[in-house]
Design a protein around this nucleic acid. Structure first.
Lengths: 134, 134
DNA sequence: GGGCAAGTTTACGTTAACGTCAACTGGTCA
DNA sequence: TGACCAGTTGACGTTAACGTAAACTTGCCC
């Protein structure tokens, strides 16, 4: 039951397709905090989860700082009323921002779909011109 | 009818809340191409539209290069069959990427909603503790 | 025990996307 | 005419997010 799965740095690098340099960099920035066996890093389940979130944030276009802010919401430090109250407003802010970003992406997709339509129409016109030469 | 609206650099800067430096930088990178009156820049409707797309792309987390690629799809240069064929596959690629990005954002939002629930539950527990001291 | 792979630290390099001067050029308005 | 804009070019500075290279340690295999 105490079999907490661990990972080496190259385990994680392979699984998430990043370089070991990247992982060390994330640690340097305080985004990951592996324990040590001698001088070798040992990553646990939490680091695994955090890395996943970081990369998801990256794909979503967030900076590391923004990702960190979100990730830190997952394991809050204090446990008093004000803390949670504050965290709630933070969550709301982030969520609002993400949703507006989501709208922007939807608009971009919509725009591309119009381009696509104009494009296929143009292809049709080439295939069978609307106004034949008579 | 020929009243093509134009903008000065600070018109655009104001409207889109960016600095003039940013706009010049975008021109330098070939994303905008204003005409000139002497040495002063004159921006037209197309530049206006392009700037809007650039900033939308930015908010969506795209790099300038990625935005440029998308924007360039709006006014294709060639007009032959292969061009459109190629453009169509490009559009598809971009769209797929944007949609996966959209999924990542949805996941982030979902995650935050869980945090929110844990958070409000914790707040409730503080207000009226589940296990009273007996 | 010699070499090899995997890991470590330190340090400098790089790219994107601007910010921040500095020095100059026209207009215009009192 | 002189002062004050808005605008221009040019150059260097800055931050984020790693890449890359060098020099070293450690465990393991033959």
């Amino acid at each position: 039951m105490g079999e907490d799965k661990t990972y080496t740095i190259s385990d994680l690098a392979r699984e998430f397709a990043v370089t070991t340099r990247t992982i060390r960099f994330y640690e340097e920035k305080g985004l990951l905090s592996p324990s040590r066996n001698g001088q070798h890093r040992i990553f646990g389940k939490q680091d695994h989860a955090r890395l996943e979130l970081i990369l998801r944030g990256k794909r979503a276009g967030l900076s590391l700082e923004e990702s960190r802010e979100i990730i830190d919401m997952y394991d809050p430090e204090g446990d008093n009323y004000k803390q949670y109250q504050f965290l709630l407003t933070k969550v709301d802010e982030r969520q609002a921002q993400l949703e507006s970003q989501l709208e922007d992406i939807k608009l971009l997709i919509k725009g591309l779909q119009e381009v696509r339509e104009r494009c296929t129409r143009a292809l049709n016109d080439i295939a069978r011109p609307r106004a034949a030469k008579q």
